[in-house]
């Protein structure tokens, strides 16, 4: 036994062994993670609990990456307003025009209690006046109005969503991805009492309620048949058909 050399060489050997073992460990970990990722990406939808809603993207499920609210589960409490890490929540109310009734007496625009049919701010349900009401047409003596949401004003309190659910339910809350930071752990999702938050594939960042989905499909069908009959060519197919 050479007492002089052995500790150094032994330490070097141990060090090298540890280094290569660590490198191998990191390599196999990442290889496994990527393998699982590729396997999951190819799997048929709906396989994963990370996706939710009706999962309308039936052809080849993509990786769930970004946060979205499932309107079928959303109860439109006001937690989206206060729990987002942003000062002004990344969640906004959205109107599905294909489902909207264009009502004069809109229960998403006017309060259902003590309401005055006047667009003065004090008469509106929206606390920030974020809903614009625009006169469109009069049919059979009934006036119709279009309601669009100014997203810079919307605070995601959900009052209009609750109001609209008394009627058609065309207003719904959605995460807007031009604002959302896509946090690792969405702090609204943590606070959500209805488990309405889930991750969806980045290339289809929208989740619709069943009724809204049906209305959009019906509108698209109507449009395509109209285009076919009037011009004889398929001009456009909106949404999923």
């Amino acid at each position: 036994m050479s007492q002089e050399e052995s500790p150094i060489t032994r330490r070097q050997m141990l060090g090298d062994a540890t280094r290569y073992a660590a490198l191998g460990g990191i390599g196999s970990l990442s290889a496994w993670l990527f393998y699982k990722r590729s396997g999951q990406a190819a799997a048929a939808c709906p396989s994963s609990s990370s996706t939710c809603g009706e999962c309308s993207q039936a052809a080849g499920c993509r990786l769930p990456q970004i946060w979205q609210i499932d309107p079928n589960r959303c109860i439109a409490c006001d937690r989206c307003q206060t729990n987002c890490v942003l000062d002004l929540s990344a969640v906004k109310a959205v109107n599905c025009f294909a489902l909207c009734g264009y009502c004069d007496n809109c229960t998403g625009y006017f309060p259902t209690k003590d309401y005055v049919l006047d667009t003065g701010a004090e008469n509106q349900l929206c606390p920030t006046g974020a809903i614009a009401r625009m006169y469109i047409d009069k049919q059979g003596g009934v006036p119709y109005f279009e309601y669009t949401i100014d997203e810079s004003l919307c605070i995601a309190c959900g009052k209009c969503v609750v109001g609209c659910r008394l009627m058609n339910g065309s207003l719904y809350l959605q995460v807007r991805h031009d604002r959302c930071l896509n946090c690792n752990e969405c702090s609204i999702a943590v606070a959500c009492p209805a488990e309405a938050f889930c991750r969806v594939p980045a290339d289809s960042p929208r989740l619709l309620s069943r009724a809204a989905q049906a209305a959009e499909e019906a509108l698209a069908r109507k449009r395509s048949s109209h285009d076919k009959s009037s011009k004889g060519i398929e001009m456009r197919v909106g949404g999923t058909s």
């Binding site: 990456q65 970004i66 959205v94 109107n95 599905c96 025009f97 294909a98 489902l99 909207c100 009734g101 264009y102 009502c103 469109i136 047409d137 049919q139 119709y144 279009e146 009627m167 058609n168 959605q174 807007r176 991805h177 031009d178 604002r179 959302c180 896509n182 980045a202 960042p205 929208r206 209305a215 509108l219 909106g238 949404g239």
Partner: peptide, 19 residues
Amino acid sequence: FPTPEFSNHPIPQSQTPAP
């Protein structure tokens, strides 16, 4: 309340900002 059909106003599509 069915969505009315307007002769001079197409029903818009609600926008979805891309991530």
